[in-house]
Nucleic acid binder design. Structure first.
Lengths: 213, 213
DNA sequence: ACCTGAACACCGTTCAAGT
DNA sequence: ACCTGAACACCGTTCAAGT
């Protein structure tokens, strides 16, 4: 009955936060967007929320636990975006193109999150069910697009695994190169990144179209 | 005349190391190979040499300085290996294949060094002449292979820039995927990594062969 | 069940001081 | 010119203790 004191004090934060786990993931995402992967620390994310610096350890065990949770959220977002672009396309070719481009655009729009999701810390050493599921679904959609495209080209569906891996590897390579070499002389063209990406995507799709069993 | 005291004490390390810069790069390379990128710190590399923990700062300014020096050494090695494989090949197609595969094999053989060389810390924020030169030469060799291959296919050399970027992006994507997802279910095939890599390389070369201006 | 606070070992970096 | 030593602010993590 006295849970809610009728004082006008500025919200005397309760001892228990309530849903600290979710709040930490949000805080981490904000830090990633604002200051990059190097600035993401358990202590800082906790401070941002106004909670003790060791509170998060209860929910995540260690830093890697937080990273995995954030990465899982990232894959959910990536998957949603890829679905959206794929569904808006109208031919097997365009759907494959869209699936690859979604990956690239997501990475370019969320550099730090993308690096966290695909970096060695998270993807090695860990086997987290929710993460594997989200990543697996994301890859699965690409593979489906590849399969449809192969069929449309009159090619054997048995090539799907190899072709999907090529499509994935290329998408991944484009992002990292475009992200890590912002002003490198090697990319000294003033072409917009999206154009460069689409160009490379088409080369790979062309390669898939002429695959030999 | 008395520089060398005739004592039998166990090498009373002189106050000045002599060539600390080189020693630090070697120490860093050893740490990378032994314990990975996460375990590389200025203090630890210095300790390994037996020098004060702040001594390296004189030579490198900050940690990034050391990373850049190590990355430059890495690109020299990668370039040498790529040259070697390319020169051993006998057709334009095989030389392009070799140039791409050299990148992949180098990454698989030196995971931590490769990540350091291509990671965001080193390749962004920094414009170091020696590093840019080494990286530029490495890419240049790939571009030359692409150009020769285009010529051999009767295609316009104007496509070289775009095609070389596609070849690079794909090589890079293959390595990172193979490195970061050691035991991922997504790659649940028991095929050796080299085979997977060669497969993808061929798909991209096939795509280059059917490029349209 | 959830959170705090003190403590430990480790960082990168600065700065005055030594040779 | 090259290196040391103490100091500062920051980590991740443990562990006993609080609610």
């Amino acid at each position: 009955m006295m849970d809610e004191p009728a004082s006008d004090q500025p919200a005397p934060r309760p001892y228990h936060h309530g849903n600290l786990r979710q709040a930490m993931v949000q805080s981490a995402l904000a830090l990633l967007k604002a200051d990059g992967l190097g600035e993401l620390s358990l202590r800082r994310a906790a401070r941002e929320i106004g909670v003790s610096q060791t509170a998060p350890l209860y929910h995540f065990g260690n830093k890697l636990g937080l990273l995995v949770a954030v990465a899982t959220e990232g894959f959910h977002r990536l998957l949603a975006y890829r679905k959206q672009l794929v569904q808006a396309a109208e031919t097997p070719h365009d759907r494959l193109h869209a699936a690859m481009l979604a990956y690239v655009e997501f990475g370019l729009a969320n550099p730090a999150l993308f690096r966290l999701m695909t970096g060695p810390d998270v993807r090695n050493n860990v086997h987290d069910e929710a993460l594997e599921a989200a990543a697996g679904e994301t890859f699965g959609l690409l593979r489906d697009c590849v399969t449809d495209y192969l069929r449309a080209q009159g090619l054997s569906v048995d090539l799907a695994r190899r072709a999907a891996l090529a499509a994935w590897a290329t998408s991944h390579g484009i992002v990292t190169i475009l992200l890590d070499r912002e002003q490198s002389p090697l990319l000294a063209s003033r072409r917009p990144k999206q154009e460069i990406a689409q160009d490379i995507v088409e080369i790979v799709i062309g390669g898939i179209a002429v695959m030999k069993p």
